[in-house]
Design a protein around this nucleic acid. Sequence first.
DNA 1: CGATTTCGTTGACAGCTGTCAATGATCCCT
DNA 2: AGGGATCATTGACAGCTGTCAACGAAATCG
Lengths: 270, 270
Amino acid sequence: MCSHEQRPQGADMTSGVGQTSHRCHAGSSALSDVKAETRAALAAMCRPRRLGAGQTAIHEGETSDYVGCVLSGILRLQKTLADGRQHIVGLLFEGDMFGRVFDGASDFSVEAATDAEVCAFPRRRFEELLSHAPDLDRALLMNILTELDRARDWMVLLSNRKISSRLAGFLVLLCSRFASVDRLVELRPDGFEIRVPISRTDLAHLLGTRTESISRAFHWLEDEGDIEILGPDRVLVRDVSALASRTGDGETDAIASLKAVLASRRQASG
Amino acid sequence: MCSHEQRPQGADMTSGVGQTSHRCHAGSSALSDVKAETRAALAAMCRPRRLGAGQTAIHEGETSDYVGCVLSGILRLQKTLADGRQHIVGLLFEGDMFGRVFDGASDFSVEAATDAEVCAFPRRRFEELLSHAPDLDRALLMNILTELDRARDWMVLLSNRKISSRLAGFLVLLCSRFASVDRLVELRPDGFEIRVPISRTDLAHLLGTRTESISRAFHWLEDEGDIEILGPDRVLVRDVSALASRTGDGETDAIASLKAVLASRRQASG
DNA sequence: CGATTTCGTTGACAGCTGTCAATGATCCCT
DNA sequence: AGGGATCATTGACAGCTGTCAACGAAATCG
């Protein structure tokens, strides 16, 4: 029920709900820690929705009637300034939640950066469930704390003046998020290949610059030997450590664990 | 108990706790909505602490043993990069909370930007109380949501390339936070005076630049007629709207309500 | 009161980015 | 396959900031 995708004919509601529950909490979802009972309640109130690239899920300044969870694709959290400039303050990947509970309108709009599927929970019913399910309440709190940390890490990244440093940081972040999912990172003898899932324009709005500078930063990193540009959305990462060092934050624990994950995957695949 | 300040002789524990409770929730505190009963429990576990300017409350990467609430002064939330650069991701004012509940270490350190007093709640006992006091849990959730919004608004502010635009945004933000507190904003015939509560160095780290650029930005805004520099930490704001328009976000609701507050205060004082 | 240190300010110059303009590449639709 | 639209890239130039250096002001300490 949580997805508009075709299901085998004859699937009854129960199996439908089970599938929803599974999909809503796949991977590193914010809701993966809640009890089965709570998950069932969530699945029951879940309204599936498919968004085309560019479509708006929540309008800026509007009080949304639902809370959402990303099933597939990428959403962007953004603000349009009075002078027409746009700025993206965050990306939402599979398993991320969005929308606000209890209080009013969000100052940011949520739009699909790619074709996407989301799971929509009616806000009132979600809040009702929150009051009776401490595990969900706890999970939501942890989720928001994580978001807050990510936002602050992102600020530090944006404090880099050179655009190539910001781009390097973004690529490292992409690697960290994608490393554990097979289909998103392809190992190669001379590094590993990732997909840059958003357009140059979105990348520019995300990194606080323009597409021209994004282009220059990509090719500068290629000249330095850190990456190789395989296509507009395909990048071969040759040296993660080098990329990380360009952000000024050097070899962190996150980088170390990323390299460990990739090494173990490389070993597993021969 | 929550403050080291002198109390009238003979005050017993009860009045002490009452005072603590009062001080911890003064102004627009994050905890102002919790029940009296919960407030009493908080007051009972409160450990007062006084911090000198520059002193560290929570070290980067360290799991803190307590959750804190600012009583007076200003704390900065910051990160030191491997290359030595420092970046401030947020300021904590009176009534703001800091420290993490439930999960591990914070990647940011919390330091006193000015002399400050904080209220420290032992983390375990605070978490225990959270589980039994839904009102506190709710208040904390709302508080963190507010912090998340502030962080994202701050990101938008930092997307301004001109330092003078960022500084203008910061001054407007200061006005918004201080407007309702008499001692922090002094009305004058040609505008209103505010105190810039942190040094040029901190301002530079906060706005992602250097002290020289901060200085230039201040004097540029003065040349434009938006402000007048009365002293290193005293600024006369002549035209809030002009300042706001320089951030690219124009005349928002926040600006309108700020002007309304100042107008009513001006009327009240004659 | 004077010396020292810290802080804020100002100037000169190099480096990077924003802007404008033009070109090349790719995708989509017919 | 052709044509149009969108996207990515590259070049030239101006503007702003970072850096280095020097100066002035204010606070601190003896």
